[in-house]
Design a protein around this nucleic acid. Structure first.
Lengths: 207, 207
DNA sequence: AGCTGTGAAATCTTTCACAGCT
DNA sequence: AGCTGTGAAAGATTTCACAGCT
């Protein structure tokens, strides 16, 4: 990407990209910054600024062309080439992600699953390789996997992160407790509980 | 809460709260702003400012007492009384959340599940009531459920949000495509795909 | 020695306002 | 009439720096 955009802007652009991606192909009309903003809970100006950040030549006659905008975002964010990702932890959550159909044509390829329990590995049916967790570092490195998803029990979170880091992973989506990683690794923590608590705080009686 | 804190601060406080919550009870030592910051990826100053926002009387002799800090955050954010939540969509993801053990003693009580497919409702075994989706509004209102989780297929996301809103829900965690809700409802969108894309952008060759 | 609390500065983001284009 | 692009203003957040406490 030409110049690292502010993180909030990057997050919004990814949201917009996902939105455009889920738009039916048939939707030939143009889309305005106001509509985009409403969909992701932002103002039209913020959306325009985000788009302006990209400094892409976008035709903006009465709104944007969805396909063109999507392409511009993809180029800007480096989403053009598919990134290889793996999941560690094949419990309920891990399997749900493993089976999530949305990764098709989304620029992300889930190409391996890991679990500590070798019995489980044999029972699960999957089109992609499922391997024991002790092979994470080796396999990630060999297969040039750059992104990882952690969906293991809390007490295994840190060792999982360590193994991924050892394999040279670049980014981690962490569904468990916070872990520490080397500076070379970007990490995104996601927690339903945290989200629910944020909502609880936002909506308590006094608010 | 005394005064609505900035959203980023609120998010961090929730993160810290979760962290303290997952700390072993035995951990009698005090915890410093630096440690907390490292765990959630922030500077010590930011953490201190967040804590200062609460204007709580916290003893801060060489760090904070975990239990005291946790209690202060709980009071401040209105996390003291348990909030009732429901899940809509009992596919793989919905079930994973339904079965997630972490809600115990976490101030959130998942007290109903909904799905469009009545066959599925009968097959699933659950200690909490599972009901058909058309009953959402009625049940949410009757049972005073204030938070909802949307884990349905994309094409049902909007109608699900509408039903939750109709039932008077206060907040929604949305795992699907963006939906629009009345201003009375707070919404948090969470998407693995978005997170992976953000990481992809953050870690592409040029970064 | 280490840690917190906090004003002040610096930085980053968003909003406003309006010119220009279709 | 509606929409984008963008400088300038406003606003919010983070970082700095240091006094004060244990």
């Amino acid at each position: 990407m030409k110049k690292p955009p502010p993180l909030p802007s990057l997050e919004r652009l990814c949201g917009i990209y996902g939105l455009l991606d889920s738009l039916p192909e048939s939707d030939r009309g143009r889309v305005s910054s106001r509509e985009l903003g409403r969909a992701i809970g932002q103002t039209a100006e913020t959306v325009r600024k985000d788009i302006a950040h990209m400094k892409a030549d976008i035709v903006s006659a009465g709104g944007y062309d969805p396909a063109e905008l999507k392409g511009a975002i993809a180029s800007y964010l480096g989403l053009r080439e598919t990134r290889r990702a793996c999941i560690v932890g094949l419990g309920r959550l891990g399997q749900a992600i493993l089976r999530y159909p949305g990764f098709q044509d989304a620029g992300i390829e889930i190409c391996a699953g890991f679990d500590r329990d070798t019995n489980k590995l044999e029972l699960l049916i999957s089109p992609i390789p499922l391997l024991p967790s002790h092979r994470i570092a080796e396999y990630v490195r060999a297969e040039k996997i750059s992104l990882g998803i952690i969906a293991v029990p809390p007490d295994q979170a840190q060792i999982t992160a360590d193994r991924l880091a050892e394999g040279g992973i670049r980014g981690i989506v962490n569904f468990t407790v916070p872990v520490s990683v080397p500076e070379t690794v970007s990490i995104r923590h996601v927690s339903v509980l945290d989200e629910l608590r944020i909502l609880a705080a936002l909506t308590d009686g006094t608010a």
